[in-house]
């Protein structure tokens, strides 16, 4: 079958760009965020500025992450059909069938991979949850930031949450969701590799160059 393959340009530049910005930001935010919650390094001299630097990196990465999120949402309306926001809401009858087919494939209950060029229904729904978690991290993060950065912009980005939730509770969930996102990252990388190895569609490479190979069985070309 290999010689019959065609390429489809699935992931446009903004999708790949925001994906890798997210990777960098999530790594930076997790490491520095973990330090802010549990300072694991101790300064020997008062001239050091460890917590100061950790917080600075955390805040810069937070702004980059917010910008990446804005670009991705913009592209959900402007990009191709694989980037379209509709893939996050797979609630039609056909899509729900695809959702359970994919679930069965991952749980070894079926040997038939969910052949799609873009996200299959299970992946689309997972990204909906992940984006909601991203939004929670951004809002709760800016809520914590707003306590000593008074201004309308920070009030709008997250300050409104203070008062609805007490500050220690916001901190708790901001911390817990980080672990959920780390767990997601493990699953995400593993199943990307697993799907690639079963579907042989160049999935792992597609996030670098944007192209996916099609086998002719895809339902969404």
């Amino acid at each position: 079958m290999a010689n019959e393959r065609n390429r489809v340009y699935a992931w446009e530049f903004p999708i790949r760009f925001t994906h890798w910005i997210n990777v960098i930001c999530i790594v930076a935010l997790s490491v520095t965020g973990f330090y802010v919650g549990n300072p694991f390094m101790y300064a020997v001299s008062s001239k050091q500025y460890i917590m100061g630097w950790m917080r600075l990196i955390h805040f810069i990465a937070a702004y980059a992450f917010l910008m990446s999120m804005i670009i991705r949402i913009y592209w959900a309306f402007m990009g191709n059909k694989y980037a379209c926001y509709t893939v996050w809401f797979p609630f039609s009858g056909k899509k729900l069938g695809e959702f359970f087919d994919a679930l069965k494939f991952y749980l070894f209950l079926s040997k038939k991979p969910p052949y799609t060029v873009g996200h299959h229904a299970l992946a689309g729904f997972t990204y909906l949850i992940v984006y909601l978690l991203f939004v929670f991290e951004i809002v709760s993060g800016f809520a914590l930031y707003s306590v000593n950065h008074k201004g309308a912009i920070w009030q709008a980005l997250g300050g409104w949450l203070v008062g609805i939730m007490a500050l220690p509770i916001i901190r708790l969930y901001h911390d817990l969701v980080m672990y959920v996102l780390i767990a997601f990252t493990l699953i995400h990388v593993y199943f990307s590799w697993y799907s690639d190895s079963r579907e042989k569609n160049g999935l792992m490479l597609s996030i670098f160059n944007g192209y996916k190979f099609i086998t002719g069985k895809e339902s969404d070309i």
Binding site: P39, M41, Y42, A43, S45, Q48, Y49, I50, M51, G52
Partner: peptide, 10 residues
């Protein structure tokens, strides 16, 4: 200043 430096009571 001890917070920013990274000097904490453990």
């Amino acid at each position: 200043a001890h917070f920013d430096a990274g000097q904490f009571v453990r």
